[in-house]
Amino acid sequence: MISPKQNKPETGGAPFTTVQEKDEELLAAESEAEARQTSMITDIWHRLKKHRLAMAGLIIISVLILTAVFASVIAPYSYRDQNLDNALLPPSRDHLFGTDQFGRDLFSRIIYGSRISIAVAFLPVIVSVGIGVLLGAISGYYGGWIDLLIMRLADIMFAFPSLLFAIAIIFAIGRGILSLFIALALVDWAGDARLIRGQVLSIRSKEYIEAARAIGMSDRRIILRHILPNCLAPIIVTVSMSIPGVILTEAALSFIGLGVQPPTPSWGAILNDGQRFIGNAPWMAFFPGAAIFLTVLAYNFLGDGLRDAMDPFLKN
């Protein structure tokens, strides 16, 4: 991170520098910043490695990703082949997680379901947090009418209960996995934007931002190089909080029948199927529920660990 105290005298002493000179100064300052950030990342990694929960989270997530990639190799059975004579078998050596009402192997369905659930959790979150952070930073940094416009847009978005809005989007653009992604990506950004804006508002008034502005740094660079890195902690908290939210929203959408189309398995869909059978086949709800819970927990552990690891860099 750039210490404003280092930069201020240099720029302050050259009020009439040419554009080229200015750029060179900036480049110098930024390469220094980049070097610091590289060392920051190594440092964070060193700290993260000591964080047991975060490492546990990281391992779980890695295993999940591998599972999703190699689902067809790992799964002992097909996710869709029915055998009604084997319906609702409790967990056993043959069927690790038991079977569902069609006699389908739950272990295999959950293995395959990790594909949908991970994709659903990742892609929309990246898009959603991306939109939120960008708009929040712009809004907080510029203030004025841009702030007004973005925040009003956020307010409008915010005024829609997320599930209701997601349903409306799915109805408007038709069902399918793509519209599920779009709906999940579009419902959450307003909250992120507000949070980031709040952070940016207090950072904006800090001296080093004034300083960076004074040396003529472009707004884009200030936002990207100074403001956002200072928002890293809340961004990470946001991401780690958005993923569970999205996973759970997906489960809720499946609950009301707007998730993936059968027989494609997703954990949300399996869980909601299992809910019906909780009285006599609790494993049907337990395992997908546990899969969701474990995944969400892993993301939370990792997010928390990242936050702790970054703590020293958030001092000023």
Binding site: M241, P244, L248, A251, A252, F255, L271, Q275, I278, A285, G289, I292, F293, L294, V296, L297, N300, F301, D304
Partner: peptide
């Protein structure tokens, strides 16, 4: 309390309800 918080954050709401 942090373990409790982790569990709470990671819990599907209708799962907890049930």
């Amino acid at each position: 309390s942090m373990l409790f918080a982790f569990i709470g954050v990671s819990m599907p709401v209708f799962w907890l309800a049930m």
